[in-house]
Computed example of a mutant assay.
Amino acid sequence: MAYEQAMASAFGMDERTWARHANPWSVWTRNTGLPLLILAIWSRTWLGGWAAPAVVLAMLWIWINPRLFPVPASTDNWASRAVLGERVWLARGQVPVPPHHRRMPHLLSAVAALGLPFLAWGLYHLQIWPTLFGTLLVFCGKLWFLDRMVWLYGEMKDAHPDYRRWLY
């Protein structure tokens, strides 16, 4: 759990940022972050040293995305519930989650993490297939993880007063 908390802290995910990130536009456009970063890294072949600013811009997009959109008018949708579920998952040390939700998020995070070496190798060697395979593993793991977070939130929304108020 320390890793997940560290990531949330690194991204400065406070209450307001989480509320804004629950906007479906934030959730769906955040999926552009990895492809933009991949493109920026790959662009070293035609941009040379100018690829570095492209990498910085892609990373800035990943950081700014949860802050860019307003708090949604409603969180009663799949994307918002995925974000709310992530918050529940991060708080599982304070409010335990049901036993059937304790293993799968770790496995899905491992699937996503398993894609990173392929992705890194493919980008370093400019090989399309490992890059695509790694990207596929990262996206499949993350999107399936988000789907599990929707399920988790659905079961946990009445377990804590804060969880209940997040849904409107």
Score class of each variant (00 low, 15 high):
147 D>T: 10
31 N>G: 15
12 G>V: 09
23 N>T: 07
82 A>E: 06
56 V>E: 04
39 L>H: 00
95 V>H: 05
87 R>H: 09
112 A>L: 06
84 L>M: 15
132 L>F: 05
16 R>F: 09
148 R>M: 08
160 H>R: 09
93 G>H: 09
53 P>D: 04
162 D>Y: 09
80 S>E: 05
3 Y>D: 15
114 L>P: 03
50 W>V: 01
10 A>S: 13
39 L>Q: 00
119 L>A: 05
161 P>F: 13
134 G>D: 03
152 L>T: 05
79 A>E: 07
74 S>V: 10
67 R>T: 04
56 V>M: 09
140 C>V: 15
94 Q>C: 08
42 W>H: 01
40 A>K: 04
135 T>N: 01
97 V>I: 15
82 A>M: 11
3 Y>C: 12
112 A>K: 05
117 P>Q: 11
67 R>V: 05
110 A>P: 04
87 R>K: 14
143 L>T: 12
100 H>R: 10
51 A>P: 00
86 E>K: 10
133 F>D: 01
125 H>Q: 14
125 H>F: 02
67 R>H: 06
35 P>H: 08
129 W>A: 12
32 T>E: 03
6 A>V: 13
26 S>R: 05
122 G>L: 02
7 M>D: 14
64 I>L: 15
111 V>Y: 03
128 I>F: 12
156 M>D: 01
58 A>S: 07
